[in-house]
């Protein structure tokens, strides 16, 4: 951190905009690569084939579908905002901070990545439910209960999506290194000034791609939401919850809503992969 390596100063700057020379790939590589692609793409193709296209407009504009879409977009946006506001600083601390036990801290932050979401939902319930550790006090002192509210949906989404943002941003911070800040310090910039004028602009692409990942994860959230927030049209029933419910009675409706989620995901990925973030960790 304190020792700038003079050889690799340009890490990413020099690479940008220049295509690597074509290198022949080992031919066997194509087989597993094609399998992997097919594994991801074919199920989506299956969804397209099962879709009841003539009924599609009617299925997607039902009141339940529109409510779910609105709720999903609004909650995912708020949750992503929370991830940035809370997870951004956390990533900086994890990448640059000097604290004993930072490794343990990082493992804890990554927990939602490896936990089944429904377990996360139960954990939230045991903390913030009406009989939970904090939830009981909230109810007693302020008369606030969190389960069954849109707040619960946002909390569940933030819980599962936070590590996505933290990991992306921490990676970007590590790649950027501390050299520019060190130079800024020699030029008289204080830590706050250097952070604002040097660090933040440097990692902005990483923050953008991390936010997109977090947003996508929020949109797809199901397990933690159903366990912690419940399912009520317009309040807690997001698109994935509606898909799960619709498939009970109306498979065509579930397929239509699934394709809507696919479409939103494609847009998110397309926006997230625009030039500034392409090729960055």
């Amino acid at each position: 951190m304190g020792s700038p390596g003079p050889v690799q100063t340009h890490g990413q700057g020099a690479q940008r905009g220049r295509r690597a020379p074509a290198v022949a790939l080992p031919r066997w590589l194509w087989i597993p690569a094609t399998c992997a692609f097919a594994l991801v793409a074919l199920p989506v193709v299956g969804l397209f084939l099962r879709a009841d296209w003539p009924r599609m407009p009617e299925l997607l504009t039902s009141e339940a579908a529109l409510d779910a879409l609105r709720l999903s977009l609004v909650t995912a946006a708020i949750s992503t905002g929370l991830c940035i506001v809370l997870g951004g600083p956390l990533a900086v601390v994890l990448a640059r901070g000097r604290l004993p036990g930072l490794r343990v801290l990082r493992s804890v932050v990554l927990l939602p990545l490896v936990l089944p979401p429904v377990v996360g939902g139960l954990a939230l319930l045991f903390l913030l439910g009406r009989t939970g550790l904090l939830g009981r006090q909230l109810d007693l002192w302020f008369g606030i209960t969190i389960p069954f509210t849109t707040t619960a949906v946002v909390l569940a989404q933030t819980f599962v999506a936070l590590p996505f943002l933290v990991v992306s941003l921490e990676g970007a911070l590590r790649t950027a290194g501390g050299r520019y800040e060190a130079v800024a310090a020699t030029l008289g910039a204080g830590p706050a000034h250097a952070f604002r004028r040097v660090t933040v602009p440097l990692v902005l692409p990483g923050l953008a791609s991390g936010s997109m990942l977090a947003f996508a994860r929020c949109l797809g959230e199901f397990g933690a939401t159903t366990a912690f927030a419940g399912s009520l049209q317009g309040t807690t029933r997001t698109l994935p919850l509606l898909v799960y419910l619709e498939r009970e009675t109306d498979v065509a409706g579930a397929v239509a809503l699934s394709l809507l989620l696919v479409a939103v995901a494609v847009v998110v990925v397309a926006v997230g992969r625009t030039r500034p973030t392409e090729g960055l960790p």
Binding site: G129, T131, F148, T226, G230, Q233
Partner: peptide, 21 residues
């Protein structure tokens, strides 16, 4: 005027056992 309409009966029961409903 339910606070939640669950996808299966065990989830409905779970919300009562947990004390949230």
């Amino acid at each position: 005027h339910p606070v939640s309409e669950e996808a299966d009966v065990k989830s409905t029961l779970g919300k009562v056992t947990s004390g949230d409903a």
